[in-house]
């Protein structure tokens, strides 16, 4: 089975680095960026299956980035990360086309589950 190509977007660099390492160790093809714009730039040049996107970021925030990603790369699945705990931004993200949302702090295996489901969906949609 093909490795899932994952893009992590969060403004906290240490957080991104840790994740990339942990997901790579779990047999994912993970890459991290620290802003919405960087994410769009990366997506333009690399094929990605799932994007894990933090809602609260300086500059272009998660919801804006989600809208842009869904517009330009409709097949890419997005999972929202929110530290706010407010269902509102999560639900808002879903209504804008996100696959799912996860409240911080989470267990990596939970997130991995959802990433796999998202990748599965992308694969099914692509067929």
């Amino acid at each position: 089975m093909e490795r899932i190509r994952l893009l992590l977007v969060d403004d906290e660099e240490e957080f991104v680095n840790l994740f990339v390492k942990r997901f790579n160790m779990r047999n994912l093809d993970a890459f991290g960026v620290t802003s919405g714009r960087a994410a769009l730039g990366y997506l333009a040049e690399h094929p990605v299956d799932v994007v894990v996107l933090d809602v609260k970021m300086p500059g272009m925030d998660g919801l804006a980035a989600l809208g842009e990603i869904k517009k330009r790369f409709p097949t890419v699945e997005v999972i929202m990360l929110t530290g706010h705990g407010s269902l509102k931004s999560g639900v808002e993200g879903m209504s804008l086309g996100a696959f799912d949302y996860v409240l911080k702090p989470f267990r990596i295996d939970d997130l991995l589950d959802r990433i796999r489901k998202a990748a599965e969906r992308k694969r099914l949609m692509g067929e």
Partner: peptide
């Protein structure tokens, strides 16, 4: 309360991920 929770959740995530790593 929401602000405080949010500010604490981020470092908590980092601690958990560091430990997880």
């Amino acid at each position: 309360a929401a602000g405080v929770a949010h500010e604490i959740n981020n470092p908590l995530s980092l601690i958990r991920e560091s430990a997880g790593w």
